[in-house]
């Protein structure tokens, strides 16, 4: 390409007046031939355009987003867990009164039952209290060292 032709082409390129074919011609020219000193920067610009064209999208794209599914699964799981806890608690509340309470019907029976239970507790308490005799031994030794009386 002659210099004056090149220069007018470059001028038109700057003004946005070149067609795609002319621009391709320019790219080819600056890519292959020796470029005059005063047009050096066009060489960089055009090789930049060529280089940039080679950038590719890395990897594959997914059409269905996984995130959506994760969200749905998460919500479903939390509902299940909440539901499970509620029913479990409700069952427990129902089991307790049914099996453990309400078997005694008359007040007299209740009175004797209560008395019996308290007696039993008292007996156990007394038994345990007897065991405390050993503590006296400790007191004896203590009294030998520290004389309070």
């Amino acid at each position: 390409m002659e210099l004056h032709k090149l220069e007018s082409l470059v001028k038109r390129y700057d003004d946005g007046g070149t067609t795609l074919e002319e621009e391709k011609l320019l790219k080819k020219y600056f890519h292959s031939e020796k470029v005059p000193e005063h047009l050096k920067e066009y060489e960089v610009i055009f090789s930049f355009s060529e280089e940039e064209k080679n950038i590719c999208h890395p990897g594959k794209f997914k059409l269905k987003s996984d995130k959506k599914w994760y969200a749905i699964i998460g919500v479903a799981a939390s509902i299940l867990i909440a539901f499970g806890i509620f029913t479990f608690q409700e069952n427990q509340q129902q089991n307790f009164p049914q099996n453990e309470l309400g078997t005694i019907e008359t007040p007299e029976e209740a009175y004797f039952k209560a008395k019996e239970t308290l007696q039993m507790v008292a007996q156990i308490m007394n038994n345990s209290k007897e065991e405390l005799v050993y503590l006296d031994e400790f007191n004896k030794t203590k009294n030998q060292i520290i004389k309070i009386k």
Partner: peptide, 21 residues
């Protein structure tokens, strides 16, 4: 409008490049 904008971009790039040089 596109041509005008493009022309501005091209000139700007070249001028900035020259400045850096």
């Amino acid at each position: 409008a596109i041509r005008v904008s493009l022309s501005r971009a091209r000139k700007k790039i070249r001028i900035e490049l020259l400045k850096k040089d």
